[in-house]
Every structure is written in structure tokens, then in C-alpha cells.
Design a protein around this nucleic acid. Structure first.
Lengths: 208, 208
DNA sequence: CTGCTTTAGATAGCTACACTATCCACTCGA
DNA sequence: TCGAGTGGATAGTGTAGCTATCTAAAGCAG
């Protein structure tokens, strides 16, 4: 365990915590107080830290993701659902208002317009509605006006990402890319968007 | 205060909490235990809830944003910095490793390649490095391979967003759009990306 | 004027989350 | 043989974001 801690940078008490929580499978016991951890444990531990630290996933969410990685060994869409559930935000607005329901209606209509193939119960629809409802309550018309631009942009990067997943030959590693693509891809895209805001502000203002 | 609570959907104890924390300016006192709250208070309260609930911003981050909205009444780039700081994730990985510093070097090189005008101390650079370092530690080469696609995508939507801000005639409302665009735009883009993953999975797999 | 409700302001408490610390009985390794 | 390390169990910590309670003072219907 000491080696696992040193190679991963994760403190021993935290590793014990992850073992207790069922995020990390136990090592192979060689004695009452001795166990072996292999490269798979190291990799799993790094995956957990990537999900939690970079992706902002909760411990409970990470547990579900690794559980899904183990069970849905061949169904990419189920795993995608698990990964998407895991990246959902912790705080959510009040959805029990007429305004929110109206926003959700608009989202489903806009999706239908674009002929996107989406499961009607997908939680991601609610997340879009959250953003539009908030924009609406503050009179920010731009988000709705530019909905098409946002959707085109999202579709563009999603197409690249799905293609990358399908290009992976090995099924097990393909499953892992579904998860990591969802989580790390989001982190990369949002942080690059912040940089692009700086660049575009400077460019469009014609300054330095 | 009762009316403010009813119209915003925020419980009275929470409003009191926001007042204590300095997120919401106090009402105009009409007596020792009486104060008036106007439409501006309602709007501010909705802004706070949008930041916290939809954008996942912390209470401390929201306080800084509203403070910046008050003080930098004319400098969009300062305000952009405040908004970007506010949307940063709460948990961050260990950045004190050679691997992370190498990832950060790669990010600055890639930015230079693209001739993006970025302040070299921008915290967003570190966020990109976080994602690339995590991808690297797990052997996910795709994120680095597709870096250009991510950057193009981010630039594309950022250009639209900056344009929308500059199109706003009134300076005060333009400042507000900087904040709301940063926060709500991120929520909209990431949730649409999740939907697009579903759509593209179905489309590229040729299924329903 | 009476009595019920509401209010501002202050203080204290709560729940969830993600660890972190301590203890114990081992056991490995020099 | 002995000190550092281990696995397992139990308990404690710190932060964040509220939530509850109390007090004195209005407000408002009858």
C-alpha cells in the first residue's frame, strides 16, 4: 500500500477510504495484514483521482462509474449514461415552477427541430432547461437566440469524441475512453473556452 | 422580505444568509425591523441563484462576482477575470509534480502555436494542464491528439459569445452579460455536449 | 387597544461531503 | 528482535451551504 501511495501521490488514509467506499477493489491478501496491489490498482486509483479532482465527480458518482465499467463490459450506451450521470452538478435549481417546465418544453422542441436522437427522459435535457430557465428569468435572450450555435458547437466536438471512441480497437479500453472522454473532455473544453474568451476579447477589441 | 422570498422562490433564512454574507445588499430600512427591497434586489437574488445553482459557483465566488460587477463598472477584461475565477472547480489535482509542469509547458506551447493572445498567468492555463496531465497519466492520447479540435471548438463558441457581449449597447447590461455568458454559457454548452454524445452515438452506430 | 403575524438582526445548529487520525494486532525486513 | 509498516475498524475534522431559534419591535385586522 505504501508503494501504491507513493506511485499515485494519494495518501494512505485516502486509499483506505476508497477501499472502504468500494471505489478501489481490495488487494490480494497474502497474510492477515498484508495484501498485494498490482498495476491495475494503480491505474484504477489514477482514474478515480482524475474523475474526482479534474472532473469534479463525487465519490458516490465515481463509485457508480467504476461499477458500470465492471458490469456493462460491452454496452457503450449504458456506460455513457453512467458517465453522464456522474458529471451532473451537485446543486440544482428548483424545477418545480411553470417557468422551468416551459423552458424544458422549449428544449425538447429545439431538439426535435434539429432531429437529434435523444432519449426523452435523459437528465441532460433537464440541465439544458436549467440554463435556459435561468437565462430567461434574468432576461438574457442571447442564450436562446444563439441556441443553434451552442448546439452546433456541441455536436461538432461530440462527433469527434464519439469517432475517437469507435476508433479504439480493444473493447475494454473503448469503455474506459467513454468515461474519460466524457469527464476529461468536458474539463478540457470548458477550460479552453475560458482561454478563448480572453483571446477573442483581445482580438475583437483590437487590443493586446 | 416575505415578498422577495415568494417572488424569487428563495427561503427567507437563505435570503438572510446571503445578506449576512454580503452577496445581497441590505434593503432600505424604514424602521428598526422593517426594510424595503426593490426590483434590483429581486434581480440580484436571481443572479446569485443562477450563479450558484446553475453555474456551480461557490458563495465566495458569487460574492466576488457581484463585487466586481459593482466596482469594475467599465472594464470588461477585469470582470471577465473575476467571472473566470468564479467558475473554477473546487477540487484541484496535485500540481506539484514534474508531469504536471510538463503538461503545463505543452499547453503554453500549443497556445503559442495557435497565436492566441493569453495572459501567461491566466488560471485557465492551469485548468487545461490539469486535464492534459490526467489524460497523460492514464495513457489517453486522444485528448492531446485532438487538442486542435477542442481549441477550434472553444474558439468558435467564444467568438460568438464575445460578439454577443460587444453587441450590447448599454455598458451596465454588457457587464452583466460577461458574467452570465461565462457561467450560463458553460452550463448550456456542457449539457448540450452530453445530448450531442447521445445523438452522435446513435448516429455513428447507425441505431435508434 | 388587542393579539396574531411578520421582520431584522444575532447566534447557534445542522447535514453532507471528503477526507484524516487513531488504535490494534499483527508481520515484514534488517 | 525490534522498529517501521499494514489491514481493518472506529471516530474525528474541516469546509460549505444553508436552517433554526431567539429577541425586540413593527404591522395589521378587528
Amino acid at each position: 500500500m505504501g508503494e501504491l501511495s507513493r506511485r499515485s501521490g494519494v495518501p494512505i488514509p485516502t486509499i483506505k477510504f476508497y477501499l472502504r467506499e468500494g471505489l478501489l477493489p481490495p488487494g490480494v491478501a497474502t497474510a492477515a495484514n498484508q495484501a498485494d496491489y498490482d498495476e491495475e490498482h494503480l491505474r484504477r486509483l489514477r482514474l478515480i483521482r482524475a474523475l474526482i479532482d479534474v472532473g469534479g465527480v463525487t465519490v458516490a458518482g465515481a463509485r457508480e462509474v467504476v461499477a458500470a465499467l465492471g458490469t456493462h463490459a460491452d454496452d457503450p450506451l449504458d456506460l455513457l449514461g453512467a458517465a453522464q450521470t456522474a458529471v451532473e452538478p451537485r446543486h440544482r435549481p428548483d424545477r418545480d415552477t411553470p417557468q422551468w417546465r416551459a423552458a424544458r418544453e422549449r428544449v425538447t422542441a429545439l431538439i426535435a427541430d434539429r432531429r437529434w436522437l435523444i432519449h426523452p427522459d435523459s437528465p441532460a435535457i433537464d440541465l439544458v432547461a436549467d440554463a435556459l430557465a435561468a437565462a430567461d428569468s434574468l432576461g438574457v435572450d442571447e442564450l436562446l437566440d444563439k441556441f443553434g450555435e451552442y448546439a452546433d458547437t456541441a455536436d461538432r466536438i461530440a462527433a469527434v469524441e464519439v469517432r475517437a471512441v469507435l476508433d479504439r480497437p480493444d473493447p475494454a479500453s473503448r469503455m474506459e475512453l467513454v468515461v474519460l472522454g466524457t469527464v476529461l473532455g468536458e474539463a478540457l473544453l470548458t477550460s479552453l473556452r475560458l482561454l478563448a474568451h480572453q483571446h477573442e476579447s483581445a482580438r475583437q477589441l483590437g487590443g493586446g
